[in-house]
Design a binder for these strands. Structure first.
Lengths: 254, 254
DNA sequence: CGGGTCATTGAACCATATCAAGTCCTGTGG
DNA sequence: CCACAGGACTTGATATGGTTCAATGACCCG
C-alpha cells in the first residue's frame, strides 16, 4: 500500500541521516516535547517517526489495545464516540501540537479520524515510557495536557447542555477564529477582522455541536444575514467583529 | 464560625496523637494515595487535614487562585459551570475516593459545591508538590485520574449531545446503580435488583443532564409507570432489572 | 455533460421548554 | 396534636426550537 511506503521511506531517511528533525519541527515550541532540552530532544527524536494519514483514515480505533502516543504535526483529527444505533458525537478535536493518545495500557473508547490530510509524529510507546521515567517533567507535561483537554471537554459540556443552536455555532466559530488569530500573529490584541476556513464539513460540525446538518446550515445563514459573519465559499469565513460574535456565543440577541 | 472550629479541632487531634489516620481511612484502597506504601503514607498523612463542608457550601470557587488538592472521603461534590445569564451545567460529580482539585497554579473555571455533607482530606499544596517530586508514582496516579475524568466527561458529551430525555435519565440512573452495586459487594456480576438513593435534587439532575426539572420529573414518572424503576420516596430508587434500564439508556423503546 | 457529494431551503412535526397550578413532604410554632 | 409555611416535586396546557423529510441548488471531477 502506498501509504506504508511513504511512511517507511520517511523512517529510513531519518535513520540514514541520523537527523533529529526536531530542530525544524513546525510545532516544536508548542508540543509537549518543548519541555525537553536539546540533548533530551535528540533522545526523543531517536524513537519517533512521522506518519501521514489521508482524509477519513482511522488513526485510533475504539478497539485498539496497543498504546499509541504522538504529536499532531499538521492537519486536524476528530475524536468521536458513537451510540450503538449510529448516532455520533465528536468529543474533541486535535490540532497541530496537540497530543494524540495516552501513556497507559487502558485506552479510551474513542475513534480518532483524520479530517483532511494529517501528519503525526508517532513515539515508540515502550521507549517513550522509559523516557518518561527518566525525565519526569514529561509526565508533568502530559498531565497538564490532559487537564487542558478536560477543561475543553467541560466547556463543551456547557455548550451541549445549555446553549441553543445559534449560540453553539457562534461559539464554534469564535473558537476557530481565536485559534487562527493566535497562529497568524502572536499578539492577540488585534481586533480587526479574522478570516479562516472551516476544517470540518457541515456533518462534522453538526456532530461536534450536537445538532443536525440542516440546523447548522440554517444558523450559519442566519449569522450571515445578520452580518455577524461573511463568506467567500461555504468553507471560508470572515469575522468582521469578533467581539460581536463572542457576544452572540453567550446569548446576545441578533 | 462553627465550621472552622470543627476543622481546627480535627487538625489538632491528629497532630496531638500523631496518628496518620490513613490506616482507618474509608477510601484508602481506592484513592490516589493507594499507590504509596506504609512508610510513604505516613509522610502523606503529615501534610493532610480533614475538613467537613455543609450542604450547599462552596468548596472551590471559580475565582480561586490558590492551589487546592485533596481526596473526597464522604459525600458528593458537584462541579458546575455557569453561563453569564445564569444557565448552569454540572460538568462532573465527585464521589468518595475521587480527587478534588489539581496540582498546578492555573486552576479550572468551575465551582465545586457540596451536595449534602462532605468530608475532604485536604493536602497541603506546597508540600504535596514536594512529595510528588519525591515519588513520581504519585504524578502518574494523578495523570491516570485526570484521564479517567476526561473519559467520563466525553461519555457525558455523548449523552448531552445525542441522547433524548428518557435515555439521559436512564443513563444517569444506571450510573448510580452500578456505583452503588460496586460499593455494596465487590462482585459486580450480581444481576438481582439494585436499590440506592439519589444524591441530587431534581434541579441538580436537570443541570447534570441538560434538561429542565419538569422534564426530569416527567421522565422519571414514565420510567416508573413502565416498570423500569420503582420508588419508595422521591429520592429512593429500586431498579428491578438493570439490564433493561441499561437497554433504555441506549435507546431501547419502552 | 452527467453523476456524485455537499450544502441550502422549505414545510410539517414533535420533543422539550415554558408557564402555571397543584400536591406532597417536612419542620416549626402555637 | 394541629395549623401552616416553605420548599421540593409533580402534573397539565401551551409554545417553540430543532428535527425530520423532501426538494433544490452549487460545485467538482471524470
Amino acid at each position: 500500500m502506498a501509504l506504508e511506503l511513504v511512511e517507511e521511506r520517511e523512517y529510513q531517511a531519518r535513520r540514514k541521516f541520523n537527523r533529529p528533525a526536531c530542530v525544524s519541527c513546525m510545532v516544536k515550541n508548542h508540543a509537549v516535547c518543548k519541555v525537553l532540552d536539546a540533548k533530551e530532544h535528540i533522545e526523543l527524536a531517536a524513537i519517533t517517526r512521522h506518519i501521514i494519514y489521508q482524509p477519513g483514515q482511522t488513526i485510533v480505533a475504539e478497539t485498539e489495545d496497543k498504546e499509541i502516543v504522538g504529536t499532531v504535526i499538521s492537519g486536524v483529527i476528530k475524536l468521536t464516540k458513537a451510540l450503538c444505533d449510529g448516532r455520533e458525537q465528536i468529543v474533541g478535536l486535535l490540532f497541530p501540537a496537540d497530543v494524540l493518545g495516552r501513556v497507559r495500557k487502558e485506552q479510551s473508547q474513542v475513534f480518532g479520524i483524520a479530517v483532511g490530510k494529517v501528519e503525526i509524529c508517532l513515539f515508540n510507546a515502550t521507549k517513550f515510557r522509559q523516557l518518561i521515567e527518566k525525565y519526569p517533567v514529561l509526565r508533568e507535561a502530559l498531565y497538564n495536557r490532559a487537564l487542558n483537554e478536560l477543561d475543553s471537554a467541560r466547556e463543551w459540556m456547557v455548550l451541549l447542555g445549555r446553549k441553543n443552536a445559534r449560540e453553539k455555532i457562534a461559539t464554534f466559530l469564535v473558537m476557530l477564529a481565536k485559534r487562527s488569530q493566535l497562529l497568524a500573529h502572536d499578539d492577540e490584541s488585534e481586533n480587526s477582522e479574522v478570516a479562516f476556513s472551516l476544517p470540518l464539513s457541515r456533518a462534522d460540525i453538526a456532530d461536534f455541536l450536537g445538532l443536525t446538518i440542516e440546523t447548522v446550515s440554517r444558523q450559519i445563514t442566519t449569522l450571515k444575514s445578520a452580518g455577524a459573519i461573511d463568506m467567500r465559499s461555504s468553507r471560508d469565513i470572515v469575522v468582521p467583529d469578533l467581539e460581536r460574535l463572542q457576544a452572540m456565543a453567550e446569548g446576545e440577541q441578533i
